[in-house]
Design a protein around this nucleic acid. Structure first.
Lengths: 353, 353
DNA sequence: ATTAAAATTGAAATCGGTTTCAGATTGAAC
DNA sequence: GTTCAATCTGAAACCGATTTCAATTTTAAT
């Protein structure tokens, strides 16, 4: 059956190594794990045999035996979204440094998939699960789903990006209020008073928090909120495009648009361009997430960054310390920061009448 | 130790189910796998107990026992690149349909990481490995690396996106020549004769194949190749930007630019814009990969698509059938197709002197 | 050279499944 | 009511590691 291509050469085990070294499997295991002393000469002999066969211990057997796989399962809404891919890679790198590996599953926004992914990761006995985005927000309304997550938490620690009261999960949340605060102060500092908000669903907590802060800051500066300036939708370019179309038809146009993310902002840019207006001379655009898209479109977008590297590190740290039974703060915050590029500028004079 | 949050409630096993059902573990296993008959009433009783506890068999034990994990390891160069994320998600979906799950690792273009990932996947006893991009091309020059891959192939089937002679891997390749052929015919059909090629490294096979075809088609139409029209680099926007800057300074400007991918094309668009030229009126731009970026930039890019869904399906099918020992063709091809958008148009009159 | 203490070592149990093999039931046919 | 075949079932071995426990070998001290 030895097929040159698919070749399944019999895999070599710890026993094979033991036999060749003339020791017991226990001893080989000891040099593998380093958890116990082995006489120097034997240790070297065993090591060289391991080298020679390029032996890699079976992780399944290992995991079965010591009930830790050193693996963290990650469920992301969709890695095709650069926000999630950036976060995932940051997690992967951080996990590696912590001696863990990661396993990714995409829920693609479908609740059934997400539940299936949870089950799969549970079966694979990951040490912890990180859930990025996804249907987390449904926990608030969907009781069956909440029960599911609660049941998962009973066996495996779960870390979610976002806040959650209905299940005993750990949270790493972006300080959305601070993010919006930075955005508003930035725009108002540039002289903007007519500020629109584009994209996002209010039922999504992160969006709702942004909106709250948006209103708060308007109030703080004594600016009357204009209901027509807030157009919700989803998180894609199309939403940004259509919402902006609507907004640019208003008699009293805003001088700045805050997009819920870079995708929505790219749609906004397209709409503005089609209206023969210029960014940032006629209208400023600012967005959240600072994905590479912000750097790709014209003009480059001013966007709120989360420092994905730190964000991932925090997620992994939370997950690993929970997995190792360390008791940790159950809510941690990520601080956002504005990266200025070319899409924001002073409010046009004409608007400052 | 029962912590409400990290709660490690003792995991329930097949033996617990067996005891409660008053049968042996073997019988429970039989209803789990369905590989053998079990009397109807017992089967139902066991099923209901499994339900009741929401029991999920330990995948480690299962994998250890039947030496198949129903998992396919995927090593991608970088999922942050939409080409890879699209392909990965397509694989994930296809794998799911085939009863497999996938495990992703990113090599981030580092050879050492890639080897570490290979080892990790091997330890996890994945049934097959799919390698997307990455340092595959180094196999041609790096003998140690080639030996590594060969050694992996000895125990686990490997599928790579690209062609490879130095190791017994399975290949799924994009028909690059066909892709370039479509591009050239498209441009020439629009009256372009001065066609530039931007980005990519010649040592990378897929790039080299495109270049070959580019020359071939020029020759076919009796167009003299202009060395200044081919500017290599890497695969990012910066490359496209700089290469295009160089090209637009030429006395005899091209009327069309072929970018190695959508990223490079976005850089090209920026350069063209800064030169106050218009796409496609003054110059056409076309690229490869048809990622969502093509739809995001202005104008939207005409780009060569690979039908990621089929591409992923093909990769998974190759991987699973290799894993299951079926003998399959070892090279399969993906057929590209042009998706026309707004960045290509007729060559400007002035150039048709 | 003894002896107690310290360092190594291997046998065997364990992790949680699957599968073989032989024995026990059940059913159909007569 | 037998009889023989077809179904079911459980005990035990196995997958490949780790770890406990007791035994053995070394080393140090007297």
């Amino acid at each position: 059956m030895e097929n040159e291509r698919t070749g399944v050469g019999k895999t070599i085990t710890i026993y094979d190594i033991a036999k060749e070294a003339g020791v017991s499997a226990s001893t080989v295991s000891r040099v593998l794990t380093g958890n116990a002393a082995v006489r120097q000469d034997k240790k070297e002999r065993i090591r060289s045999i391991i080298q020679k066969y390029n032996f890699k211990p079976n992780a399944l057997a290992k995991g079965l035996s010591d009930t830790s796989t050193k693996t963290i399962g990650i469920i992301a809404a969709d890695v095709r979204n650069p926000y999630y891919s950036a976060l995932f890679v940051a997690c992967e790198v951080a996990a590696e440094k912590a001696g863990y590996s990661v396993s990714l599953a995409n829920s693609l926004g479908e609740k059934e998939r997400e539940q299936a992914q949870l089950d799969l990761l549970l079966q694979q006995r990951v040490d912890a699960i990180i859930q990025m985005g996804g249907r987390v927000d449904d926990l608030i309304t969907d009781d069956a789903y909440a029960e599911k997550v609660r049941s998962v938490c009973r066996t495996t620690p779960v870390v979610v990006t976002g806040k959650l009261d209905k299940a005993p999960v750990h949270s790493v949340v972006i300080d959305e209020a601070m993010g919006m605060n930075l955005v508003m102060e930035h725009l108002i500092g540039l002289g903007h008073k007519k500020i629109a908000l584009v994209g996002g669903e209010m039922r999504v907590n992160s969006t709702y928090l942004k909106y709250q802060k948006y209103r708060e800051i308007l109030a703080k500066y004594g600016i009357q909120e204009n209901g027509e300036y807030v157009v919700n939708g989803t998180y894609d370019p199309e939403t940004g495009y259509e919402a902006t179309n609507k907004i640019l038809e208003l008699k009293d146009r805003p001088t700045a648009i805050i997009a819920i993310n870079d995708f929505a902002a790219s749609g906004a840019l397209r709409s503005i361009r089609e209206h023969r207006l210029h960014v940032p001379e006629d209208i400023s655009v600012i967005s959240f997430d600072n994905t590479y898209i912000a750097d790709l479109v014209m003009p480059k977008l001013t966007s709120v960054d989360y420092n994905y590297e730190d964000y991932g590190k925090l997620l992994i740290e939370t997950a690993t310390s929970a997995a190792e039974g360390k008791d940790t703060a159950n809510v941690r915050m990520v601080q956002p920061e504005i990266v200025e590029r070319d899409s924001t500028g002073p409010a046009p004079r004409s608007s400052r009448k």
